[in-house]
Nucleic acid binder design. Structure first.
Lengths: 186, 186
DNA sequence: GTCTATAGATCGATAGAC
DNA sequence: GTCTATCGATCTATAGAC
């Protein structure tokens, strides 16, 4: 793996576990094993690093959603895959997904970063809307209301569940918050 | 109002709009109109300030929930009051409530602060559980599942809705995320 | 209780050798 | 592309006069 990717990987982990404002190039230097000045060669400013992180994350998460779609026969299976993906990102309660971390620190970011963050949320809402529409058609999700309203509610639910679970450092909170929704897929 | 309260008020606003790590005693000094060194007289360390903020917020929010309970005749009315309270805290999309801000920055806090934060979440979950139980009895909330599961889901939903709305700087996102739940109270 | 002054650390970022 | 060295700004916190 080249240095740029290693920097992005370590930076993403630091953002997700500590927050964007709470880690420094010194932390990143220690994690990757090169000097602070060398990081600036790859990402001249921290704003450049933030943009690279969110662009990569949005693309990767789009791939993840595509993979869930392909292997899920029903809308309910898709929704369970989505809940599982956010659950895995919690790392047992020691991190949140990058979008939650970025949403929480939105004051620190430039407009291009905020635009990507908004795009990430819109991507997720579109995918969820299709998922609920499918689940309503095939009967694999119970009591489906307006799909776009279900999508907006589900996006907020999983991000809030991550936040609450992370605050307590306990992944049980995520399961408790998402339990009713998961039950609707059985 | 005495200086200590003025400091807490300004600090709370700064935390909710920028995040705990992203404001400094210099910002607080400018907001309140006394010198940085004078702030240390009231709150020797920033950790002391954090604890005072969350303790006060937990107590105030408990009062708010009590007031909602007293003026609400049904479980549904209580739930609408809860959704309204979190909506008002958004300040049009320019801030989040203190618990969301603290949850997001949990790495910056000492154990006593995290214990208060957890207490805040437990208080809210207990109140919501009673609210859903009441709404199920009096028929003012539709399709109520297990009250404690409804409570955990609702807490995560409103915190996530705040996060998404704040990220976009648009309170419409809060209304979109909470619309289905609100509909269940009609 | 508020002030001036400053300590000591850390921050993001840059210059220039190799 | 990575390094040493360093800059100027900012951070939390303290000392001591008033």
């Amino acid at each position: 793996m080249d240095t740029r990717d290693a920097l992005l990987d370590s930076a993403e982990q630091l953002v997700r576990s500590r927050g964007f404002d709470a880690f420094s190039y010194a932390d990143l230097s220690a994690a990757v094993g090169i000097r602070k000045a060398s990081i600036h060669h790859h990402f001249p400013t921290k704003a450049d690093l933030a943009l690279a992180l969110i662009v990569r994350y949005r693309a990767q998460f789009g791939d993840t959603l595509g993979a869930i779609s392909r292997k899920s026969a029903t809308g309910g299976a898709r929704l369970r895959g989505y809940l599982d993906a956010y659950r895995a990102a919690l790392q047992g309660g020691r991190a949140v997904c990058l979008c939650v971390a970025f949403s929480a620190g939105r004051e620190s970011f430039s407009d291009p970063v905020l635009a990507e963050l908004d795009g990430f949320h819109r991507d997720g809402a579109v995918w969820l809307r299709e998922t609920f529409a499918k689940g309503r058609e095939d009967g694999s999700i119970k009591a489906v209301g307006e799909p776009s309203a279900e999508a907006d509610a589900t996006l907020a639910l999983v991000e809030g569940a991550q936040l609450v679970a992370r605050a307590a450092g306990d992944i049980e909170r995520y399961d408790a918050a998402t339990g009713l929704l998961r039950q609707r897929t059985r």
